[in-house]
Design a binder for these strands. Structure first.
Lengths: 102, 102
DNA sequence: TTATGGTGTTATATTTTCTAACAAAGAATA
DNA sequence: TATTCTTTGTTAGAAAATATAACACCATAA
């Protein structure tokens, strides 16, 4: 996996990188906006991608959005991304078949 | 700075990523093979580049090298790299002057 | 107005990390 | 060979970092 997505950063460092309080970070996890991994002992581990995500969340919160709205946007984003990916895959499959058809 | 070089990983995670014991990692720092940063409280922070470096160190140790020899190789590597960079810079400067000379 | 959302703060427990010291096995050196 | 040095494990105790849970408070939504 890429360095960007590897979960290796503890919450104190994430707090420094994002400017968010640990309280806020834990709350956003509770609201399912981020999903850190855990050590065996239960300590949270975040990725740089999580850090980026948290900065986006901070921006949206500043714009007056609620966590529930952000959550919905995330889900919607996932849906359209998945849809697009599937379309592209179907396109590739069709192309592969058509090449050999004529 | 790139994710690869940002110092954000604590020693326990580094230990997991590299397979080295915390004792070994601290010892290699003592021998100046790596230079982690510190939090205000004194906790070490490593980068992915440090993790890569540690894997190289592990290989060299397996080959029977001593930390002092690895240290020398590092210094030598730094020397030649610096030398090469300076040569290239001088080359660029010369090229820039020559272009305008004729 | 009342309920919900977001965050700070506090308390207490647990986990993680730190340094320092001692021991031991193997490698290098006198 | 005898001695010193290198590397690593282990232990102990302190300090730092993180965890959860609860309470309070203000702002905003319903």
């Amino acid at each position: 996996m890429s360095y960007k997505h590897k979960k290796v950063i503890t919450i104190g460092i994430v707090s420094e990188l994002t400017g968010l309080s640990e309280r806020q970070i834990r709350y956003y996890e509770e609201r399912q906006l981020i999903l850190p991994e855990r050590t065996n002992g239960g300590t949270r581990k975040f990725s740089f991608a999580d850090v980026e995500k948290l900065m986006e969340i901070a921006n949206k919160m500043e714009d007056g959005l609620q966590t529930s709205e952000i959550r919905k946007m995330d889900k919607e984003r996932l849906r359209t991304d998945t849809e697009l990916r599937n379309k592209m895959i179907r396109g590739q499959i069709n192309a592969a078949f058509n090449i050999h058809k004529r």
